[in-house]
Each structure stands twice: as C-alpha cells, then as structure tokens.
Design a protein around this nucleic acid. Structure first.
Lengths: 179, 179
DNA sequence: CGGCTAGGCTAATCCAATTAGCCAAAGCGT
DNA sequence: ACGCTTTGGCTAATTGGATTAGCCTAGCCG
C-alpha cells in the first residue's frame, strides 16, 4: 500500500470536486475517500473527522468568494463598486452552483470559518464605499440580502418563468445601487 | 402497549415541534418517535419514511407561509400589496426561525411540495399587482430574492452590527417597491 | 542497517434508518 | 359476549456511514 500523498489541503480540493459533482449535497467521508483512492479511516490521519473537513471546505469557499469579490471591487468607487460586487457575487454562484449551496449558513463556531466570513464582510464594506455610519450598514445589509437571495433562488433553479433572468437581476441591482 | 393515536397529521405536528426545538437542524425519525412516545419503527405505520415525513413537513411549511402572506396581501393593491408581502414574509421568518431554515430549498420532486410552492408563487404574483408581463416577473423575482435573502441572513443571525435591523429592512423594502 | 514516525489498512463499534415478522388492541358483525 | 379482521404497537435484524482501536509497512534519519 503506497502512500497517497494526502494532506488537509488535498482533501479539501478533493472534497470540492465532490461538492461540484453532487451539486452541494451533504458531503460524506466515504465519497471523499473513494475519490482519494483510499479507505475512509485513512482520512482521519489528515483531518479530525467530517465536521472538521466541512469546516475547512466552508472556510475555503468563503475565502474563494471573498477573493473573487475583492478583485471585482478593487479600484472601484461608489455605485460602480456596488454594481461590481453584486454582479461578481451572482457570477460566482452561477459558476459553481454546488459550491454556492455548500456555503456555510452560519459561519460561526469555528475560528477558520469566522475569519473567512470576516473577510467577506470586509469586502462588502468596500462595496458600499461612499456611505457613512448607519447608512453604510443598511446598504451593506441590503446588498448582502439581495445578492444572497437572488443567488440562492437562481442556483436552486427557482426561477421557472421563461423571462430573461439577467434582466431581472439588472433591475434588482439598479433598485439597490445608490442613484 | 396502548395505541398512541398517531396519524400523518399528528406526526407532522410533532415534527414541527422538533423543528422549532432544534432550530431547523436535520430532522430525525428517532427524535420524532421519542416525542411521540413511540419506538422509531412504529412511525412507518403512518409515513413511508424520513423522506416522506420531510416532504409532508416541507409542504406544510410552504402552505403556512403562503397562507400568512395571502392574508397579509388580501385587499391590498400596488405598492401597499408589495410592502405587506415583504413585511409579512420577514415577520414569519422571524417568528419561526427554525421553520424558516427547514423550508425546502428545492420544492420539486414531490407533488405535494410542488403544489405548495405553486401557492406561494401565486401569492407573490398578487403582491406585484398592477404590473404587466415581464415587468411583473422582474418585480416578483426581486421581491422573492430580497425577502428570502434578508430572512435567511437574519434568521441565521447574520446581521452582527448593532444597527437597527428594522430600519435596514425598511430601506430595502422602499428600494424595491414601485414608487 | 536499525529505528522512528507517518499514513495506510482491517476489524470492530456506534448510531440512525429501515425491514421483517410477531402480537395485541379496536372495531364489527353475529 | 365471541371470533374475525385490520391497525398500529414492538423486538430483532440488516444496512450504511462515521468513527475508533490496533496492526503494519513505507520513507526517512542517523
């Protein structure tokens, strides 16, 4: 039995393949082990168990999203920043529907998750550039809610009608963005 | 061993207690059986298994929500209807955070779920009263996305900042509602 | 080469769902 | 009241996934 060259990082990468393949269903150690070409108990040499693997994957997803948004927003100001944030958010969810559904609902309880969630918040804060105090908080919440709601519904196939979804999203964006 | 007086309906009611108690975590037959004062296998005399119970619970939740929204929207027109819809939606989610998280993500695959989801859509359509064709669809999508996004984030404790959440919601509502 | 550690493996345990098969409680017609 | 049938409990057994215990070898170090 040769070494498989596993590590927490490679396991996270393998788990992401599994997430993409299953469309975000509950992760299972058996599936990850099979993909890694190894028996399930072997995974415990690299991660503490399923909850830890889920936390690592969750943190990775939040981080990916935060990075993507960060790149989209950088160097933009005011309404442009907000638009870029919203479009990049939706694009990410559309590009990885499984990963979007696998995003941790409550990124609390694990320091890694909390740190990643923190980064995401920081990016959202940059997207409401130009607003002050409570106004910034209100705007940030509206953007997060709209982005998440739209992405969740769309990536779950919730928009049945045969009407242009891009157009719907643009309306939503323009309704929210400071005029 | 006396009869426990169970039925699909009572099991759904018991499952809802469990959902409220656990805050929307994965339902388990063991927990429901314990609450019903019965051994797990006995439940199979009333429902086909966990998936069916989940479908029944999901349909019941969608139906409750649809009814609540329906009552809120009835007799209202235009912007008033939209505002009422959004506020009632958020209020329901806030009143039952566990149930909100237990709402089926993809109400498809089971005719009962599909029917309930249909009702919900019909109520949303009434809330965009006054708009025609594509405009109505865009508005409905925006409302659903905003309502779901806000409710999901709020009921998951996603708004950490100490800034009035009611005010944030009002901003979002006014940004969306046809002026 | 001998020894140490890391990383596989098998076997065994635990837990939740589910199935099989038994048996009593109710309802019902006589 | 009596026996039949159906309904709804129960225990025992199976299955599947997570996890733990303990063994054993590959790779590395002196």
């Amino acid at each position: 039995m040769p070494r498989a060259g596993l590590s927490p990082e490679t396991l996270v990468a393998i788990a992401l393949e599994e997430v993409d393949a299953t469309g975000g269903a509950q992760l299972s150690l058996g599936a990850v082990a099979a993909r890694a070409g190894v028996r399930p108990p072997s995974l415990y040499k690299h991660v503490a168990g399923l909850p830890e693997l889920e936390a690592l994957v969750g943190a990775r997803l939040l981080d990916d999203l935060a990075t993507t948004l960060s790149v989209a927003v950088v160097d933009r100001r005011g309404a442009d920043a907000a638009r870029a944030f919203l479009h990049a958010y939706r694009a990410w969810a559309l590009r990885h529907p499984g990963r979007y559904r696998a995003l941790p609902v409550q990124p609390s309880g694990d320091p890694r998750l909390e740190a990643a969630a923190e980064r995401l918040l920081a990016v959202a804060a940059r997207a409401v550039d130009g607003l002050e105090g409570d106004e910034a908080v209100h705007a940030m919440r509206a953007m997060r809610a709209a982005a998440h709601g739209f992405a969740a519904l769309e990536s779950a196939g919730g928009f049945g009608m045969a009407v242009d979804v891009d157009a719907s999203f643009d309306r939503l964006v323009e309704a929210l963005v400071p005029r």
